[in-house]
Simulated scan of single mutants.
Amino acid sequence: MFKRLMTMAALALTLGAVACTAEVEEEGKLPDVDVKGGEMPKVDVDPANVEVSTDTQTVVTPEVNVTPTEGDDK
């Protein structure tokens, strides 16, 4: 019963919104804005201590043998 009532209410609101029409009678315009210089905030930043280094690793890769099939020109 509640679902049916909510469905009918939603349908009525949808039909009411669709039935409305709107026409622009007078074009609007943007307001005049006067922009003056400002000041950046002063911020005290303590950056993180990051250590960068390199390391050599050996990666073992499998050996792959590819035998193309006859007539495979790609």
Rank of each mutant, 00 (worst) to 15 (best):
F2I: 10
K3H: 05
K3Q: 09
K3I: 08
R4G: 03
M6C: 10
M6F: 09
T7E: 07
T7N: 09
M8E: 12
A9G: 03
A10T: 03
A10N: 07
A10Q: 05
L11T: 10
A12I: 11
L13E: 01
L15F: 10
G16N: 15
G16R: 10
A17L: 15
A17F: 14
A17Y: 12
V18Y: 09
A19H: 06
A19G: 07
A19K: 09
T21V: 08
T21M: 01
E23T: 15
E23I: 11
E25R: 13
E27Q: 12
E27P: 01
G28A: 14
L30T: 02
L30V: 07
L30E: 08
P31F: 01
P31Y: 01
V33C: 07
V35R: 10
V35G: 04
K36I: 08
G37I: 00
G37S: 12
G37K: 11
E39G: 02
E39S: 12
M40S: 07
P41E: 01
P41N: 05
P41W: 02
V43D: 00
D44E: 14
V45T: 05
D46I: 11
D46E: 15
A48C: 01
A48N: 09
N49P: 00
V50I: 15
V50D: 00
V50R: 00
V50N: 00
E51H: 05
E51F: 02
V52G: 06
S53N: 11
D55M: 11
D55S: 12
T56C: 04
T58M: 10
T58Y: 04
V59F: 09
T61Y: 08
T61D: 02
P62G: 11
P62K: 13
P62A: 13
V64W: 04
V64E: 01
V64M: 06
N65V: 14
N65G: 01
N65D: 14
V66D: 00
T67V: 15
T69K: 12
E70H: 00
E70Q: 08
G71K: 07
G71E: 06
G71M: 00
G71I: 04
D72V: 09
D72F: 14
D73H: 08
K74N: 13
K74M: 06
K74S: 14
